[in-house]
Amino acid sequence: MSNEQQYTFSKEELAEIEKIKAKYPDKKPPVMPVLWMAQEKFGHVEPEVQRLVAETLDLPEAHVYGVATFYTQYYKEKMGKYVLDVCTCLSCQICGGYDILHYLEEKLGIKAGETTEDGKFSIQSVECLGACGYAPMMQITNDVYCNHLTKEKVDTILDDLKKDKLPEFEQIPFPQHQNESSKS
């Protein structure tokens, strides 16, 4: 195998892309969903991946580059297997978001914006993730939300991730529904 990884979409993925194209009246709009598909598959959208997306959609590479670099969730370079996006924005800030960030930095021996040497973890300090009432919180690799974080909860999550066990989706019941049911 050569060092240069060949990036391609499978037949099934190409069929999926045809379905995505059918949702829009123009050929540009699939660029975001297809970048998402590519990132899902390859873990990032480095220039080579952007080229694949451009070729698949018959768009100029420069256009795909422009889009990929505008949106923060597309990884323009290789990231750790688990990207820990710690919210430090307004509500999380005042509820200890930075404490969680610094605790993670200390535990993993890296700073926000860096990746551990073994390639397992990256940490990022991010803007509001729309979970302000459940602060402090973080998201793992653009997917699972971990709410109401404490140092103990962070310990458990890290131990699990080291064993490649992702936290499950945490349903937070609507408090009004709960209160009423506990009263009646």
């Binding site: 889009v67 969730q73 597309y74």
Partner: peptide, 24 residues
């Protein structure tokens, strides 16, 4: 249609640009 991390895409005309497959 899924966004990809950009607060500005909540502004209505930016949202339309983003839906059209462009920078927001």
């Amino acid at each position: 249609h899924s966004g990809a991390g950009a607060y500005i895409c909540g502004e209505e005309s930016s949202l339309m640009e983003s839906l059209e497959g462009k920078r927001g």
